[in-house]
Computed example of a mutant assay.
Amino acid sequence: MKKVIEKKVYNTETATLIAEYWNGLGEDDFMYCEEYLYRTRKGSYFLRGSGGPLTKYSESNENQTWGISTIIPISKEEAYEWLEANDKTEAIEEYFSNDIDEA
């Protein structure tokens, strides 16, 4: 998937996949959600997300709501928070080793 946002190209085929999340539901479920965290060659982070009509990955008009797939640019701090929230310890250690300390 490729999308231009604020004059920057975000491309899942050329970026590095860092981690992924899936809530375990099938694509036909209204609460289905999956997210993939990527890092571009220039160091920007983004999520490629997909979801059903009852998730943040949805669009609607006056009569209907449907699921979508999209790309969302995020900051380095948001990428770290996403990894921590989704228990992606190995990815944190690999991509944010300079930002964490031993307890």
Rank of each mutant, 00 (worst) to 15 (best):
N98K: 14
E81Y: 13
L25W: 07
W66P: 02
S44V: 01
F96A: 12
L37E: 05
N11P: 06
N63C: 04
R48C: 07
I68V: 07
R39V: 14
T16I: 12
I92S: 04
E27S: 11
E13T: 15
S58E: 02
S75A: 13
T14R: 10
A103Y: 00
Y32F: 12
Y10V: 05
A103Q: 09
E81A: 15
W22M: 09
E78L: 09
C33P: 00
Y21S: 06
W66A: 03
Y80V: 05
E13A: 15
Y10P: 00
N23D: 10
E20W: 09
E20H: 12
S75P: 09
S97I: 13
E93C: 14
E27W: 06
E77K: 15
G51E: 03
E84W: 07
G49V: 07
T14C: 08
G26E: 11
S50M: 10
K56D: 06
S97Y: 14
A85F: 12
E20L: 10
A19Y: 10
E35L: 07
E34N: 09
E6M: 13
K88M: 07
K2F: 11
Y36G: 00
Y80P: 04
K7T: 11
E6I: 13
D28W: 04
K76E: 12
S60G: 11
Q64H: 07
Y45G: 06
G49W: 06
P53E: 03
W82V: 09
E84M: 05
K88V: 08
Y32E: 01
E84S: 06
N11I: 08
G67W: 00
S58T: 03
Y10T: 01
Y95Q: 03
E81Q: 15
K3H: 11
V4R: 12
F30R: 00
E94F: 11
E77M: 14
D28M: 05
N86Y: 05
R41H: 12
P53K: 08
A85M: 11
D99T: 08
A103E: 09
D29T: 01
E90P: 06
E93F: 08
Y10H: 07
D101M: 14
I5A: 12
R48A: 09
F96C: 11
V9F: 02
G49K: 01
P73W: 07
I71W: 01
P73E: 01
I71L: 08
I74W: 02
D101S: 13
I92K: 02
K56A: 08
L37N: 05
R48L: 12
K2M: 14
G49C: 09
I100W: 10
I68G: 03
Y45F: 15
E6N: 15
L83R: 00
Y80G: 04
N23W: 00
F96S: 10
N23V: 00
D101H: 12
K7M: 10
I68A: 02
E94M: 14
T12E: 09
Y95E: 10
Y10N: 00
I68W: 03
K56N: 04
E6F: 14
T14P: 02
I74V: 14
G43D: 09
N61W: 00
N86T: 12
V9H: 00
I74E: 01
D87C: 07
I68M: 02
G67C: 07
